[in-house]
Design a protein around this nucleic acid. Structure first.
Lengths: 213, 213
DNA sequence: AAAAATTTCTCAAGCTTTTAACAAAATCAA
DNA sequence: TTGATTTTGTTAAAAGCTTGAGAAATTTTT
């Protein structure tokens, strides 16, 4: 991991993607995969696949390919997702509650260990009803305290746009390390807190750009 | 628009982002913005901002900057979002219903004109109750027919992973032009149908990669 | 009206990323 | 065991993207 000083951001994105494709292969009981096959699944160049892995070591077997189980572990190690990450969701509206019960998180090492809203009582009934079991939703006022108590490192923002920055500030104050913002406005934080803004409309915008030609 | 043959994908992503920041400026009653200011808001280099626009024409005024209103229109023209895009959402579970009522789509020219589920009756009650108004949810069996009737060009997939590819195939058959896949597995389609896979866990993966160092 | 200041636009240099090509190593077949 | 085949890992070339610097145009100041 010292051989290369800088890893392209695109490589990181692709690693996460390879992982998804490896899951797919594994579910089809494949044991081994070549860079060519994986590349085809991910719409990238086979040389790219090999190069992406080469940044971090030698994971393959020449003449054979990559053992899927091993490769998955290597990628998880690289990404840092071979351990549990404790997450808080802030804003339990439609999107927030969708995230709360999002099955895919459970399979990963992402664990939602707290949910906050400005109206926990009003919201709790609605959510619990929908889930068929009670979910503990706390008032945002307790965010700082609870985030620290529960060792939460990541916050997911699913509040309305006008509240998004305020919540981001709260999360920063509570000393989370990273923020995933799903509200439709960009939020900002000091250098030491990493932010990912994920906008549905941006995904559509870029899709539409390519449709329009 | 003939000066440059190929536009970097990163430029397209940034254009969509500039738009978000311009909205923000406009809401603060700003009329004009310089590449320096916009760059700072978007965490990019000012030269990058100017270059991104230069691909498509001359939108600025020297010594002054960019008129926000004009610039927004230019960007919308470039992206192709200055007209209405008609969308179908398939899979009205938690995430699907969140998307259905997602306020940000309404403000854009993205219009959800159909919703499908495998169990429209069971789901309708739940959704309508939550929205306080009845929402028409159709059976997936009618997808092809309705997509054509209603001139739908984009499909959003929010079904469980094991159904995702099937739904993608259905949408392709119904001749949509593009697909936004929010299910947690990659879906594939023939060349002529554009796909955007948007995975929550991928956003977290890349966030975590940078947190782990 | 002229000078100073500002800011875009353009060009080219510099840097990064991707791709191709090939040597090296392992597997597979005879 | 040997030879043929496969497929990785590596290097270097090619392509692509970002950035800096300066000319050109506009605004602001004097």
């Amino acid at each position: 991991m010292a051989k290369y000083s800088k890893i392209p951001e695109a490589t990181v994105r692709r690693l996460s993607n390879y992982l998804k494709c490896l899951d797919e292969l594994e579910s089809k009981n494949e044991k081994v995969v070549s860079s060519a096959t994986l590349a085809a699944m991910c719409n990238v160049n086979p040389a790219q696949v090999r190069k992406d892995f080469a940044y971090f070591g030698e994971f393959g077997v020449r003449g054979m390919g990559y053992r899927i189980k091993d490769l998955k572990n290597h990628i998880k190690d690289i990404l840092g997702i071979n351990r549990e990450w404790r997450i808080a969701v802030v804003g339990i509206g439609n999107l927030g509650s969708a995230i709360l019960v999002y099955k895919d998180f459970l399979k990963q090492n992402y664990k939602i260990v707290a949910a906050f809203d400005i109206d926990p009582v009003g919201v709790t009934g609605r959510i619990s009803e929908r889930l068929g079991k009670p979910v503990e939703i706390l008032h945002v006022d307790s965010l700082k305290e609870v985030v620290k108590q529960r060792n939460i490192e990541i916050g997911i923002i699913t509040v309305p746009p006008q509240e998004a920055q305020k919540v981001a500030d709260l999360l920063v104050e509570a000393e989370v390390k990273g923020i995933l913002n799903l509200s439709p406005v960009p939020v900002r934080a000091p250098e030491h807190v990493k932010i990912r803004n994920l906008f549905f409309t941006s995904a559509l915008d870029s899709l539409v750009y390519y449709l329009s030609k």
